[in-house]
Nucleic acid binder design. Structure first.
Length: 210
DNA sequence: ACATTAAGTGATT
DNA sequence: AATCACTTAATGT
């Protein structure tokens, strides 16, 4: 199978013929093994990867070397973060790692500008990628903004302790759940956690702050 | 001893 | 985080 045919098969639905010609002429297809670092943070990025088969992951590595997965990329998808590179820095902010053995289409960053100018289907593709990535980010934003129940519970307890001038609060998990408009199960779990962290002590119908 | 209610857990979405 | 389904523990009668 030629390079052009392969691209046609995978990307034919979303890219125009002329765009496929360009990608086949200027890009290269390469197989990678699971675990390969295609791009690491701080690397100069010369080529933007588009996933043709298998799965890649985009991760951010924190100061302790812990990987935080930003998102996975399936066939036909490309990393939005690398699109922004064509306009500015060229220095990668993220790590791009193969999750499975897979093939990538690597396209020179230098030529990306002309793709944007010449091919409507490429513009559409980029927008769509941005859109779907944005959706994911909004979701994670939501969970970060609204779901810090553990902190809310702790504050709730401190407030109650303050009001009653005692470290022993007589209350059921259910009542806390009602006040914070969540479920009892969640409260129980988080309280258990706080207990393990040594911040409180749990009894029946009673919680003691330490 | 038995029923009732509070709390804990695992699995799933 | 929420929900479900189920278990376990504490309490009252």
């Amino acid at each position: 199978m030629t390079k052009r045919e392969k691209l046609e098969e995978i990307l034919g639905d979303i890219f125009s013929d002329k765009l496929l010609d360009d990608l086949a002429a200027n890009g290269r297809i390469q197989k990678f093994e699971e675990g390969t670092h295609i791009i690491s943070r701080g690397d100069m990025v010369e080529e933007v990867p588009i996933v043709l088969s298998g799965t890649a992951k985009v991760v951010r590595t924190d100061d302790k070397g812990e990987e935080h997965i930003l998102f996975y990329l399936n066939p036909t998808e490309a990393c939005t973060a690398t699109f922004s590179i064509c306009s500015d820095s060229k220095i990668s902010e993220i790590d791009f790692i193969m999750e499975t053995d897979a093939e990538l289409l690597l396209y020179p960053v230098k030529l990306m500008d002309s793709l944007t100018k010449e091919f409507p289907s490429w513009r559409y593709y980029v927008c769509r990628n941005y859109g779907s990535r944005m959706k994911e980010f909004l979701q994670t934003m939501d969970t970060i903004a609204f779901m810090k129940m553990d902190e809310r519970i702790l504050k709730y307890l401190e407030k109650a302790s303050d009001a009653l001038q005692t470290k022993t609060i007589n209350i059921t998990h259910q009542e806390i759940a009602n006040d914070l408009s969540t479920s009892r199960v969640v409260v129980s779990r988080l309280l258990k956690q706080l207990e393990k962290e040594g911040k409180i002590q749990l009894k029946r119908n009673r919680i003691e702050l330490l």
